[in-house]
């Protein structure tokens, strides 16, 4: 069975990195390059997992995550924040917005791969 994953990042190199990292897995990757695209894609495609960059132009990753969690149709989708901001405060903000994990850039692609596989094979989190 193939999984749908949404990656939202305004940096095309990073999207390519995620694409290459997940190329061996049975994953369909949807790409968005800003916050509002990400929100629209999440609602339209209902991916199994969302990878969100924090510092995106327009809507930030945090804002997107909060919006996703407010919407009951998208709330159960696990969100992983990807960010160059590495302070504990930033991580707390990410997790507080409803993300299940916070990966600090630069991250190891293997680490991302393992995290994605774990999250895909875990039962979905209880939205309550």
């Amino acid at each position: 069975m193939t999984h749908k994953i949404l990656i939202a990042d305004d940096d095309p190199s990073l999207r390519l990195l995620v694409r290459v990292t997940l190329s061996d897995s049975s994953v369909t990757l949807i790409e968005a390059n800003d916050g509002s695209q990400a929100l629209a894609a999440a609602r339209a495609e209902r991916p199994d997992l969302i990878l969100l960059d924090v510092a995106m132009p327009g809507l930030t990753g945090l804002e997107v995550c909060r919006a996703l969690k407010r919407d009951p149709t998208t709330a159960p989708i696990p969100v992983v924040m990807l960010s160059a901001k590495d302070k504990e405060h930033d991580q707390n903000l990410g997790l507080g917005a409803g993300a299940v994990a916070y990966l600090t850039k630069p991250f190891s692609p293997l680490q991302l791969l393992y995290l994605v596989e774990d999250l895909l094979h875990e039962p979905p989190a209880d939205p309550g």
Partner: peptide, 30 residues
């Protein structure tokens, strides 16, 4: 720090992938 980390993410990430996995030549070049 943000501006530096962004390109570094790609450099480190792709270098790690190249070191740990096999890719067809066109992908490698990319």
């Amino acid at each position: 720090s943000h501006e530096l980390r962004t390109p570094i993410s790609s450099v480190i990430g792709f270098a790690e992938l190249l070191l740990t996995r096999q890719f067809p030549a066109p992908r490698q070049r990319q």
